[in-house]
Amino acid sequence: MSSHPRRSSVDEQTSKQLEDKLAKRPGKSELIERNILKDDKGLAPALVAAREKLQRSQLEDNLAKAMASRPPREELEKSGILKDAEAEDAAAAAAAA
């Protein structure tokens, strides 16, 4: 039985480039600071997923409540916050003619 030296499928230059890039990659804490990774604070992945699902659900509920309690367009037009949509459409049509 003859033993042949194992050849790498990657050439030496590519291997060196890969090692350099791996040596320069940012650490976990930097990735967390840059919001690339989430800080799991040592929790089990299942708990992290459940926490994120709960937070999203709470955010959706808060948004739905805010949308339900916003004043109607007519009220905003009366108070001068929004321009009257019909008057705006009429002005745009007159300008186009």
Rank of each mutant, 00 (worst) to 15 (best):
E75R: 14
R7W: 03
A49N: 09
M1W: 15
P45R: 09
S29P: 02
S79Q: 11
E74P: 01
E75L: 13
E77H: 01
V48N: 00
E77V: 15
A66G: 05
G42H: 06
E75W: 01
R70P: 00
D11F: 02
A94W: 07
A44M: 11
S3Q: 10
V48F: 01
Q13H: 06
K83Q: 08
L37W: 14
M1R: 02
L47D: 15
S57T: 08
Q55G: 04
N62L: 15
A94N: 10
G42A: 08
L76I: 09
A90G: 03
A68Q: 14
E74A: 14
L54C: 07
I36A: 00
R70W: 00
D89F: 10
P45T: 08
D11L: 06
A95V: 06
K53Y: 04
N35R: 15
R73D: 12
D89T: 11
E30H: 02
K21D: 06
Q13P: 01
E30M: 07
Q17R: 15
D11E: 05
K41T: 01
G27K: 06
E74D: 12
K28W: 07
Q17T: 12
K78R: 15
A50T: 10
A49I: 13
L47Y: 10
A44K: 15
E19M: 08
R6C: 03
E30P: 00
R6I: 14
A87N: 06
L31T: 03
A23W: 01
R7S: 11
A96V: 09
R56C: 10
T14K: 14
E33V: 10
E19K: 11
P45Y: 08
A87D: 10
A23Q: 03
E74W: 03
A46L: 10
E60N: 13
G42C: 09
N35L: 12
L43P: 00
L63S: 06
D61F: 12
S79D: 06
L82G: 00
K78Q: 15
N35S: 15
E60Q: 13
S79N: 12
D39G: 01
E33W: 07
K21L: 14
R56G: 14
